Structure formats: C-alpha cells, structure tokens
Simulated assay, not measured.
Amino acid sequence: MALQTREVIFDTETTGLDPKTGDRMVEIGCIEMIGRVETGRSFHAYFNPDRDMPVEAERVHGLSAAFLATKPRFAELADDLLDFLGDSDLVAHNAGFDFGFLNNELELAGRAPISMERMVDTVAIARKKHPGAKLSLDALCTRYGIDRSHRVKHGALLDAELLAQVYVELTGGRQIGLGLVDAPADNADLAHPTPNAPWHRPATDKPRREPRPHVASQEELERHREFIAGIANAIWSR
C-alpha cells in the first residue's frame, strides 16, 4: 500500500535578518505532518548564539541573551534535528529566510546544507491563491479562521503549529486527509494510505445483512399525511 507524503512544517527565530552579517538562529520549531495531517511528533530547541541579542529582535520573539546563554549550541543538537527532518520536504513561511539560517548553522557545524529542492514556501502558495491579499501568517490565520489569540510574541514552535493549519487550508482544506481507507494492520507511524485511494471493505466473519429499504411504505405515508393534517396554522397551508 502506498505511503502518504511526510512533510515537516518549521519556523525559526533569529538574532536578525541576515546570516551573512553574523546573525544566528536561536530557536527552531518543527511539526511532522503525514498526508497533510499532524501526527503529534515535533522537534523544538533553543540555541546559544554566542553573541548579543539586538533589542529589535528580542522585541519580536522575547528571547534574551541571558536566557539563551544556558542553552546548547546548534552543533550539539544538529544530528537530532537532521534525524527528525529526514529526507522530507520542509515547509516554511517565506521559506528562503528560514532555509538561509538553517543552512548557515549546518555549515558552521560542519554539516552538509539541505537542498533547496526540498523547500516549500507557503508565501508563494498563498500569493498564487490570493493575489493582492496580505500574506503574513497573521493575515492568513484571520482569512482561514485559525485562532492565534495565544500568539503574544513570535515563537518558532507556536508559529509552526499555526503554519501547519494554514498549510492545510492552502492545499485543499481540512478534509484533505479524510480518505475512506483501510488502516494499516500494524499501525506504523508512516504507513498511512493515500487519501484518494479506493476504499475496500475489510474481511470479516460477520454475516452479511441485506440492504435496508429506504422507501416509505403506504402505511407510513398515510400516517405522515395524518400527522401533517393535524398541524394547526401550518406555514405551507398559508
């Protein structure tokens, strides 16, 4: 049976806007989705950037240099992160920004960069679907009725969770993963059937029931007419 596609929705927080000028990634949050359905698996970490935190950046995400000084450096968790990402496509909002910082950290840690071919940019998807509209994560949450009342400041895991919901709406809506298919026998995490696969009745030893009639009998129709006739001042009689 074909497996559904695994994707990782992720977001980062940083010290600034450009890794080429010394800015660093200080937080990453990742959400696993299979067939556009969240599995409940996630990866979240803060990183010590070994540098100061500009006031403007701290104002956005609330992460101070003092808080981050107690966190591990990216290189210490790089393998754990790469294991979680696997070879899945990586979905981010304005993904070029997040990929730039992620690959910069991987390079500093002596790891190979992640191919840009794996990048899925929800801003690009939203631009095609809603040309001329506001494309921020907040704006898309408002458009799709996604609750973000708990988002006081930016946070990588929280924003990834919101983006996962936005991504579902951008790519077909909430029912995209509700295929009528057999569940895998071993309930393996990745063994999910494709959402559009034909549904087959599983084998069973229970006796087969004949289809129930769905046409009212003459007796039932007569009782219905008597019931309707007894309704005083019926709107259909005016």
Results as ranks from 00 to 15, higher is better:
111 R>M: 06
164 A>V: 07
80 D>T: 06
116 M>D: 09
163 L>Y: 11
233 N>A: 11
173 G>Y: 09
212 R>V: 14
226 E>I: 14
63 L>C: 08
7 E>M: 09
138 D>W: 03
103 N>K: 01
158 L>I: 09
49 P>I: 02
189 D>P: 04
51 R>T: 07
75 A>M: 03
189 D>C: 06
77 L>W: 04
182 D>T: 15
21 T>D: 06
141 C>A: 12
100 G>A: 14
70 T>L: 08
74 F>H: 01
192 H>E: 02
220 E>G: 02
152 V>S: 04
197 A>G: 03
175 Q>L: 15
149 S>K: 15
34 I>M: 09
207 P>C: 01
149 S>G: 15
151 R>E: 04
230 G>R: 13
195 P>C: 00
187 N>A: 15
8 V>R: 05
157 L>E: 07
210 E>L: 02
206 K>G: 01
195 P>W: 07
12 T>G: 04
122 T>Q: 00
131 P>R: 05
3 L>Q: 11
155 G>E: 05
204 T>C: 05
164 A>P: 14
58 E>S: 15
207 P>V: 00
53 M>T: 08
53 M>E: 05
84 F>P: 07
11 D>W: 06
159 D>T: 09
138 D>Q: 10
40 G>P: 08
75 A>D: 08
103 N>G: 02
91 V>I: 11
168 V>W: 00
156 A>E: 10
61 H>N: 11
143 R>E: 06
174 R>A: 13
114 I>F: 10
55 V>P: 01
87 D>E: 14
202 P>E: 00
22 G>F: 06
77 L>T: 08
150 H>D: 15
231 I>G: 10
58 E>K: 13
44 H>D: 14
30 C>M: 03
162 L>H: 13
34 I>D: 10
214 H>Q: 10
98 D>V: 02
122 T>W: 00
183 A>S: 05
84 F>C: 11
117 E>Y: 15
117 E>V: 15
99 F>R: 09
43 F>W: 12
188 A>P: 11
67 F>G: 02
86 G>I: 01
134 K>R: 02
101 F>Q: 06
47 F>Q: 03
171 T>F: 05
122 T>M: 01
2 A>E: 13
85 L>H: 02
169 E>S: 09
19 P>S: 07
117 E>R: 15
166 V>Y: 04
96 G>A: 05
238 R>H: 10
77 L>H: 10
57 A>N: 12
133 A>Q: 05
175 Q>P: 08
56 E>T: 10
73 R>Y: 09
4 Q>G: 12
53 M>K: 01
209 R>L: 11
43 F>K: 13
2 A>R: 05
65 A>I: 00
115 S>E: 12
225 R>P: 02
209 R>M: 08
44 H>V: 01
77 L>Y: 03
4 Q>R: 11
206 K>L: 10
175 Q>A: 14
152 V>K: 11
222 E>A: 10
53 M>I: 14
190 L>K: 12
233 N>W: 07
45 A>K: 13
59 R>Y: 14
179 G>Y: 06
31 I>V: 15
97 F>A: 04
219 E>S: 11
182 D>Q: 12
72 P>H: 05
45 A>W: 05
175 Q>D: 15
117 E>L: 15
177 G>W: 10
130 H>F: 15
93 H>N: 11
18 D>A: 00
